[in-house]
Amino acid sequence: MAESILEVENLRKYYLQPRGLFSPFKTEKRIIPAVDDVSFYIKKNETMGLVGETGCGKTTIGRSILKLTPVTSGRVIFNGTDITHLTPSEFRPYRRQMQMIFQDLDAALNPKMRIKSILTEALTVHHKLSEAEINHRIEELLEKVNLKKSKLSSFSGELSGGEKRRVGIARSLAVGARFLVADEPTSALDVSIQAQVVNLLKDLQKNLGLSYLFISHDLRIVELLSHKVAVMYLGRIVEMGLAGRIANAPRHPYTRILWSSLLKKKSQEATQVPSDQHDGRWGVFDFERSYSGCRFAPRCPVYEAKGNPAICSDPANAPKLSDIGNGHKVSCHFPLE
């Protein structure tokens, strides 16, 4: 078994939301558990896929790992070191090894800087390089991400979506990152360009031995790229396991709904949700309800089919993420067969 490059243990991120005109004077604030008790690990040279709908906390996990947002509790262990409580200056050396590809195409690109100076900056953050070395490395990078050399003198506004994405990837590689958090890297791209980027990420993993945390709402692309997949719902992982098993034999009702809605494969028993009443609130925290029981219950076809069993809505009895064999973990009282 290969060594794990990243371990996340019991990660929690709660946001405090002030509410109302007098909120600054209130001590009591409502808590939004954006990420609630999430644990997983990523092995070297492997990809972990993280799927879920808008607002389920998948991006927050990525940002917490890179310490772009402070965590409430839990630990992030990178290459055997606990990086959760490092000060910014202690953490700087680790920035060299882990990078993020942002969902926003323009994120990595200062609009007033030319592509060449963007890449030069990334190359020289952690190393001192001579002019010739910089040019050499930039050429290498461009080759790695299939970008034309003529684009070096342009500004980010002059690039197409696919090119921007490539520059973003090149920038992450320039630092020498071994681990990339890819936050929806294809969602802003066209179908034909999306395929190019997916292939590029695959190639880079093969050639450079990168590890990814691949965050996306598109289960198909996640399954295609990942070795392991975790499905998130409202801040919790509801199912986790090898990509093949998640794709072919999902056990959690939510995963099955996700699959069928993507591939338009109507498997009646899983997609039949009796009414549309939760259409609006799905995937978003509903503050009026307590989230202590099974969070998926209000939307769950199994819950409905079994005649609303008490165990699902019991606040004291939240389902635990339990192993059902071969490292396939499901958090459900009644996992599907």
């Binding site: 772009l68 942002f102 323009d106 994120a107 200062n110 990334a122 953050v125």
Partner: peptide, 22 residues
């Protein structure tokens, strides 16, 4: 809002470089 400041932080740039340069 445009995120590139965050990206620069993720890159490991020091705060004063981000402030003065970017």
């Amino acid at each position: 809002q445009k995120n590139f400041i965050e990206a620069a932080m993720a890159l490991g740039l020091k705060s004063w470089v981000i402030i003065f340069k970017h």
